[in-house]
Design a binder for these strands. Structure first.
Lengths: 177, 177
DNA sequence: GGATTATGTCAGTACTATTGACGTAATTTC
DNA sequence: GAAATTACGTCAATAGTACTGACATAATCC
């Protein structure tokens, strides 16, 4: 049963190359880079009994405090049912709180607690460290060019999601200084 | 039950920023970029009843024809049991064939069939297109700097895995020069 | 001949995701 | 003010990918 069955095709022994103009080098690098990028927080999350889904929710609630459940679903591109369990756990463990929407009382605005803020920072720290090291290592003086490239990799119609963040800080009691 | 329970922490209403030198911008961009990067092949895979795991196996078997099961496990960083089902399906559907190792007959060398090669190319095509578009869009003349950055994001001790490939091509019709 | 190695497989479990259906409360619409 | 819609929550069933642990087989090494 080791050898191929009679009907099976013959083995191709040559490696797939950048034939046809396919950029295998970057495809593969992207895979490895993301794999290791997510491995850092995964280790921390394990201590809490959380998974990657918790991280993503925690991240976006910290980035856009007060976003509603519907907005969160839109950013994560998952279904309500998938979010439900994860969000419930984060609320039960006091990392996130829900506040009734001011205008529309059907809405639940999501905010991090101090505990949730701390965890989000703890998870982001090794990732940020890795990024900084990579920028230095690779001698990429232009951090901006990496940002531009990554942004250009995102579906154009979804780029709006990215640009929501910066504005958030301002408005009320503005974070810095 | 909408409002927070008595014991819950108070909501933090300010967005997390690049305080503490945390690079949230790139962290988030990396998430969005990878999400959309994988969405292209996901659609194609669905037609075959395959998932992302099949894609990864197919990719590496095409990139390093003749690799053994153990080598594949090492690259993917998953367990034998996780690979088993996926690999079996790819063999049953005639995308991959096993050949007994020439030196060590315990080993199973994995090769793509013509069918498996074709699918790997079909999956890579939209990804490569996206990368090319992103490099143009972002005006990143230096494709090399993106490559260097991504490589630097990979755990140093695992970078060896990346460099296995290029050698494969040479010998015969070597790509560059 | 005994230990180790490479692979395969069985059983059980966990996490993340899916679709479909239904319920409740609040808002909007006519 | 009744009806439709919206925002959210939840129950049930299923799928894909991963895990640990255990065990079997065949081949190689010593």
């Amino acid at each position: 049963m080791t050898d191929r069955s009679p009907a099976a095709g013959k083995p191709i022994r040559t490696a797939i190359t950048d034939e046809d103009g396919i950029d295998f080098a970057i495809i593969e690098l992207f895979f490895f880079a993301y794999r290791d990028f997510t491995s850092d927080p995964d280790q921390i999350l394990a201590d809490y009994g959380f998974g990657r889904a918790h991280h993503r929710v925690l991240h976006f609630v910290n980035r856009r405090p007060g976003l509603t459940v519907a907005e969160l679903l839109d950013v994560l591109k998952i279904t309500k049912q998938s979010l439900a369990r994860v969000l419930k756990q984060l609320i039960d463990t006091d990392h996130i709180v829900q506040v009734q929407g001011p205008r529309d009382r059907r809405q639940r605005e999501l905010y991090p607690t101090a505990k949730g803020r701390a965890l989000a920072l703890a998870l982001a720290r090794p990732q940020s460290r890795r990024i900084r090291a990579a920028l230095e290592d690779s001698g990429t003086a232009e951090r901006a060019s990496i940002e531009r490239f990554l942004e250009a990799m995102v579906n154009p119609e979804l780029r709006a999601q990215i640009n929501i963040v910066p504005a958030q800080t301002s408005g009320k009691k503005n974070g810095d200084h």
